[in-house]
């Protein structure tokens, strides 16, 4: 059990009946690292992530997040992580301010802190005019940025992002990744799943999951050298094809 690691996974397995969704995976994520968690649809990414954020119990193996065990200390894990899902994470029929107040509230932040954070967040994203508008009326890219900021409200040490940029235009995606980097520089650990291979290039290290197993895990640069290709896209295709 290494204390310096943000995430520590050892022989983690999840079975649904006879089907093995996650097959004996092990990896570590260091503090302040941007870790890309890649894989085709159905490769077991989401299942693995659900175990790490404490809403799915592992069948066997261990996982520690923020040095808490995900199976036995799920409550502690939940307090130390932020989470933003591929599906939209804010309430459409609440205003930006109300969403911030609500999510701040369920993480047990004090009213004064929430007020302060709300102001900070609105200034930072330049949403002064939109703060009292329903989230419904915002463009998708803005919603995602607000959702990311909301997942940071309680100052978590580790942030889990499940396909955060799905359906967003390239410029907004770029801005989104700038936000991710800013948080990583502050020492936060980022665990991100994505389908965009160009985004994989932005990560410090990436793992590629195929059929429940981690088939590759290294820096994008090393992976490209290892598979003798120029882009992460080709690495991904090569891996997926070899398995078939």
């Amino acid at each position: 059990m290494k204390k310096e690691n943000a995430i520590y996974v050892e022989n983690l397995t999840k079975m649904f009946g006879d089907f093995t969704a996650v097959n004996n995976i092990s990896f570590e994520v260091g503090k302040g690292e941007v870790f890309g968690f890649l894989g085709a649809n159905g490769a077991g990414k989401t299942t693995a992530m659900k175990m790490l954020i404490g809403i799915l119990k592992p069948t066997s193996g261990h996982a520690q997040v923020a040095s808490f065990d995900v199976a036995s200390q799920a409550d502690e894990v939940k307090k130390s992580i932020g989470y933003m899902s591929q599906r939209f994470s804010l309430y459409n029929d609440l205003t930006i301010k109300e969403n911030i107040t609500f999510f701040g509230g369920i993480y047990g932040l004090k009213k004064s802190v929430i007020k302060e954070k709300t102001q900070e967040l609105i200034d930072e994203l330049g949403l002064k005019d939109e703060a009292n508008k329903l989230v419904k009326s915002l463009p998708l890219g803005w919603k995602q940025k607000v959702a990311f900021s909301v997942s940071l409200l309680h100052n978590p040490r580790i942030i889990f992002l499940d396909e955060p940029t799905g359906g967003v235009d390239p410029i907004t995606r770029r801005q989104f990744w700038e936000m991710i980097y800013r948080e990583a520089h502050k020492g936060k650990t980022i665990f991100v799943t994505t389908h965009y291979m160009d985004e994989a290039e932005y990560c410090d290290r990436v793992s590629i999951m195929v059929e429940g197993k981690i088939e590759a895990l290294d820096t994008p640069k090393n992976l490209k050298t290892q598979y003798k290709v120029d882009s992460m896209n080709q690495v991904f295709l090569k891996l997926a094809r070899n398995i078939e």
């Binding site: 954020i53 404490g54 809403i55 409550d75 939940k78 307090k79 992580i81 989470y83 899902s85 591929q86 599906r87 939209f88 994470s89 804010l90 309430y91 459409n92 999510f103 369920i106 993480y107 047990g108």
Partner: peptide, 13 residues
């Protein structure tokens, strides 16, 4: 359906 239930379950609630 909206996926917000997941967010609630990941929270300390």
């Amino acid at each position: 359906e909206l996926g917000t239930m997941e967010i609630l379950l990941v929270s300390p609630l």
